[in-house]
Design a protein around this nucleic acid. Structure first.
Lengths: 200, 200
DNA sequence: GTCTATATCTGGATAGAC
DNA sequence: GTCTATCCAGATATAGAC
């Protein structure tokens, strides 16, 4: 019984630090958030932070990777649905909903996007997630085209990229204009996607 | 004839500094661009920078405010056109086009957006520009509705905000995926706006 | 494991000669 | 007006006691 540490406590504290960091990074951005601020908010000493993370950047990366919504499981379900267009809409909503759920999420995502093309490590992390999204969009989109529910003149890659951009627009707008109505945002998004896919 | 300085030379050098700063801020962001880097690139000494700007932040603000495309003149023309919907589309293109013209523009705009909700001074500056855009969109949109060219069920404020978000999406996508085709982007945007405004 | 104290470095801005 | 040299603040990360 000579266990020195309680792994559960360790994990809990680590998580606590991540939660605090997420708020600060979202509010202030990565660069102007200092480790002192983080430690103060988490209620730990500056030195103690380094027992949980190798440095500030590792904290940031950990924040970004912590909640990977399992798109894979959902995607498997959706690709077998009878109504491809509705499946696509469901997927789009799944991608956009986190933006409206917690106000710090869109800010964090934007921060990550900007850091991504400045820091290769962050970029690699984001690219992985984005790839999954794009692949899912392409698959569902081509199914919708085959079923005659979307304009066959659309280029699959291009249309998927654009729909992804539309989702990003929701994140952007939610982050920058927090007073804007979340439900209305999602309604606009679905209306837009549907209209975009319809034949011209 | 005892003029000590040539005002034209002064202005030219100031502009040169701004050009250099714009590139650095776009590539690296505001925070991680140092005054030393800026001076090195501009070919001036650290001290000399402060003869042209009061500080780093003032350089950033000057970069943001330097080219205010005169939306007002265009707007006056467009509000008198016979075809309101086409006028609206023209306006949207006018707003989006800078994103595709110079690759540093969209990055700079995004950087400004993020800084805006962290620094009130930047925020005030951006809000002024955004206000003009939104006002223009609302006016043109309501004219289109009156002419029966847009869905009358749309809420003017909400729809204008959403169209503005769509424009932002072009900036976002251009900044983050520079390999993406500019013309295609604008085509997607107009198609999307048109489709969004059509009756459901 | 957690603290306090501090080393080390870097950045923005200034002083003062030329 | 422009330079060189430097100050001072603040940030990350480490050392070492408890």
């Amino acid at each position: 019984m000579a266990r020195t540490v309680d792994p559960a406590k360790y994990a809990a504290k680590r998580q606590h630090i991540l939660d605090c960091a997420a708020v600060l990074f979202a509010q202030q951005g990565y660069e102007r958030t200092t480790t002192s601020q983080l430690c103060a908010r988490a209620g730990i000493s500056p030195g103690n932070l380094y027992h949980y993370f190798a440095g500030k950047k590792q904290v940031f990366l950990a924040v970004l990777t912590q909640d990977e919504h399992d798109t894979h499981a959902l995607l498997d379900r959706l690709t077998q649905e009878a109504a491809p267009l509705e499946a696509l809409i469901s997927f789009v909503l799944h991608l956009a909903r986190p933006a409206t759920a917690d106000p710090i999420v869109p800010k964090l995502v934007l921060e990550a996007m900007l850091q991504a093309h400045r820091d290769p490590e962050v970029g690699a992390e984001l690219a992985r997630v984005d790839d999954d999204e794009m692949r899912g969009l392409r698959v569902l989109l081509s199914r919708a085209v085959q079923a005659g529910e979307a304009d066959p003149a659309l280029d699959a890659d291009d249309a998927a990229a654009w729909i992804s951009a539309l989702v990003s627009a929701v994140y952007l707008q939610t982050a920058l204009a927090p007073d804007f109505d979340a439900a209305q945002q999602l309604a606009n998004l679905t209306r837009t996607v549907r209209a975009f896919l319809r034949e011209a």
